[in-house]
Amino acid sequence: MVSSFKKALDSGKFIVTCEVAPPKGTNLEKTIHHIEMLKDKVDAMNLTDHQSSVMRFPSLGAALLVKELGGEPILQMTCRDRNRLALQADLLFASSRGIRNVLCLTGDSVILGDHKQAKSVFDLDSSQLVATIRTMEKGKDLGGSDLDGGVSFCAGAIVTPGADPLEPQLIKFEKKIEAGAEFIQTQAVYDLDKLKNFMEYAGQFPAKILAGIILLTSAPMARFMNKNIAGVNVPQYLIDEMASAPKGGALKKGIEIAGRMIKKIHDEKICDGVHIMAIGKEELVPGIMAEAGLV
């Protein structure tokens, strides 16, 4: 069965996805609140997989929760913590429970997270994980054995348009698409002219491209991202704009900027859609969409 997200991708409509972070623990209240608030507003929601290598409730469990609550999940799967047996097993389980979208990621280093001494796996890489999904869809596992009951997924991956240097990143990007990625979510972009340049290149490939939007919450947060997040560059004029916000008004300004960017991407048809990352402030996503004129 084709996922509603896949149908939306194929329909040519402007796609909006967002993120929901599973909790550190079993208290699912906030996660459920976010899912219920967003499930009818976005085309699909990503469930993050131990984001930044911080151990949390599993993305698979949270994806199941989205499904149970009537939403459309995109299961994030990193290659950091599971070898090819475990990844394939989780794909079988996901498929059996109606989870139809998977975002294939390499995963951050264990060293950056909260279990710094853990063994990292990286048995497969992100492009190989995309290829694994396509292999399993043909009824085979990576060992060459037949599957009793197959799988069907809409597979995606990511790209960092602002990577420095960019060329090695694009080689990987093309491998992901050749392996069968149907959609690509980008790392956060702020310079839309640069995004347009990137799309002149990326637009020639068959995958749908969703521009990553990270909500700016303050000028220091923007500076922090510039310094610490690979491939993210918030231009000075946006930092100044954030800094110009009245006391207590930075978040409102951030929503305004995110909304404005999404509107431009939509109106000028720069990308096929957007992926909004509100980083723990998912309740603000409807506000961002309203600011963009999308609801």
């Binding site: 950091r80 390499t106 995963g107 951050d108 280093s109 060293i111 950056l112 990292s120 990286f122 890489d125 992100s126 492009s127 190989q128 990511i158 790209v159 960092t160 990577a163 420095d164 240097p165 090695p168 990143q169 080689i171 990987k172 491998k175 790392q187 690979a230 491939g231």
Partner: peptide, 27 residues
Amino acid sequence: HKGLVNGPCGGTDKGKCEIDSNRDCAW
């Protein structure tokens, strides 16, 4: 650092590794 054989991860920056800006990105 991750032993990747198909190209770099998204953590590489300015030719350095995501775990340490003193280490070169192999890719």
